[in-house]
């Protein structure tokens, strides 16, 4: 073939190939904390059978997974754990926030529940519902597949420029920083530090 191809055309096609391969075997890491976790189990069991979409291989080791499904509410004690698990997953990785609680706190607007995990983690797909029906979760997996196909690159360049906060506007805290009781969690060691 005497055609002279630009480098970028070549890369674009490989990007598409890589994304196509990736999207059809998204292995979920079920970060199931509460009720939504049971619906996640129902999605995996015989009636709904998420295996039809290549996502049945739930692995509880973050190292082996591509997509973290946060199913259920996340509370203060759990945030550092969640961030640590997210950091342990290898690239490329995505995050589905399943259910009202994980997305916004849901009915639990209380002192200990985080009002949406997107305040602390980058989230790719939100699933509404309390709990979402299994069909909705499957839809979310399909949406994520589409997102992977559209934006995916072979060396994960698309993540590099997402270096800013993507969550909702931070809530005004009611106390000045120096009076806050629980200081920023250190996700690298999975613990919290006291400020004073």
């Amino acid at each position: 073939m005497a055609l002279k191809l630009d480098d970028n055309i070549f890369i674009a096609q490989l990007d598409g190939l890589a994304s196509w391969v990736r999207k059809n075997s998204l292995w979920p890491m079920p970060f199931a904390t509460a009720c939504c976790g049971i619906e996640l189990m129902a999605t995996a069991s015989s009636r709904y059978d998420i295996a039809r979409f290549g996502s049945e291989a739930m692995r509880f080791s973050p190292r082996q997974c591509d997509v973290m499904i946060v199913a259920g509410r996340v509370v203060m004690k759990m945030v550092p754990v969640m961030q640590r698990i997210w950091l342990q997953m290898s690239e490329p990785k995505w995050c589905i926030s399943m259910g009202a609680c994980a997305s916004s706190g849901g009915v639990f607007d209380t002192y200990s529940v985080v009002q949406g995990i997107d305040r602390f983690l980058p989230v790719d797909v939100y699933v509404p519902g309390c709990p979402p029906r299994p069909e909705q979760l499957i839809r979310a997996v399909l949406d994520l597949q589409e997102k992977v196909q559209r934006t995916g690159t072979i060396n994960a360049r698309e993540f590099r420029d997402r270096d800013h906060y993507e969550g909702p506007t931070p809530l005004a805290t009611e106390l000045p920083v120096e009076e806050l009781v629980v200081a920023p969690g250190n996700y690298r060691t999975g613990t919290r530090l006291r400020l004073n």
Binding site: C35, R73, V75, K77, M78, V81, F108
Partner: peptide, 27 residues
């Protein structure tokens, strides 16, 4: 690791509203 303040919510919601929350107790 899942303490979400159910009992505090029970003091804030009325008897019918709290049904939504007790549902989520033993889910």
């Amino acid at each position: 690791y899942l303490h979400s303040g159910f009992e505090k919510l029970g003091e804030d919601l009325d008897f019918n509203q709290y049904v939504t929350v007790v549902d989520r107790m033993n889910y």
